[in-house]
Design a binder for these strands. Structure first.
Lengths: 105, 105
DNA sequence: GGACATTTTAGGCAATTAGCTAAATGCCTA
DNA sequence: TAGGCATTTAGCTAATTGCCTAAAATGTCC
């Protein structure tokens, strides 16, 4: 998934909080919406943006839509950017962007 | 620094690329601007947003302004969000957000 | 102090975003 | 199939964003 859309989706605090909420498991659109002080249509727009970025997906379940987190997309974008910034995870081993020569000058 | 402003600043690809560029050391506003296909005033606006988020700082040096990266702000925001999402770094040890009881059900 | 280079501010414009209410759609269940 | 609940779409408004050019500020150096 394009990193641009992921970071765009992450730029709104409500959308970040939705992801955090879904960490605990799938929730219906209405359940999620009840956590936030905005209208359901507004929340629907936030869901659309998160879905477009590949961060969540919706599934029809008995008349309601259950949204679930797509952790791998988030992980990929975040780790991708951190890697490019030299903020790699410890188990990644080395720092390919900066070799010995550049470090010593 | 407020995480909201950091993620807002990170939402534009040019601003993320500026950070990446500054990884290699301080650069003047003009030098940075030359890397991007937009006008200098537009870049100045991007710098302002990065500065407001605490991601960079500017210093006067012989008639030019040298911007430098503030890695700790980026690290704090990114690790903070990842921690809340359960995407902790490997050396963080455990996963405080989900204990044994919740895992087994 | 004056000319020059660098960067930001001002002002303007088109597009996008975030929010709302009201209406339409989807989908169960009786 | 009709009613009802859940969700999205439509249509609107206000505010913000991102970009531009032109002008102003800031600071250097002669």
């Amino acid at each position: 998934m394009p990193m641009n859309k992921v970071f765009d989706a992450l730029s709104h605090p409500i959308r970040r909080e939705v992801l955090e909420l879904l960490k605990g498991g799938g929730m219906t659109a209405g359940e999620i919406a009840d956590y936030f002080p905005v209208s359901k249509p507004t929340m629907s727009g936030h869901f659309a943006k998160l879905k477009e970025a590949g961060l969540i997906q919706g599934e029809n379940r008995r008349g309601a839509i259950v949204y679930t987190l797509n952790m791998s997309t988030l992980e990929e974008a975040l780790h991708g950017f951190m890697g490019r910034m030299g903020l790699a995870r410890e188990d990644d081993g080395d720092v390919p962007a900066l070799g010995k020569k550049e470090l010593s000058e």
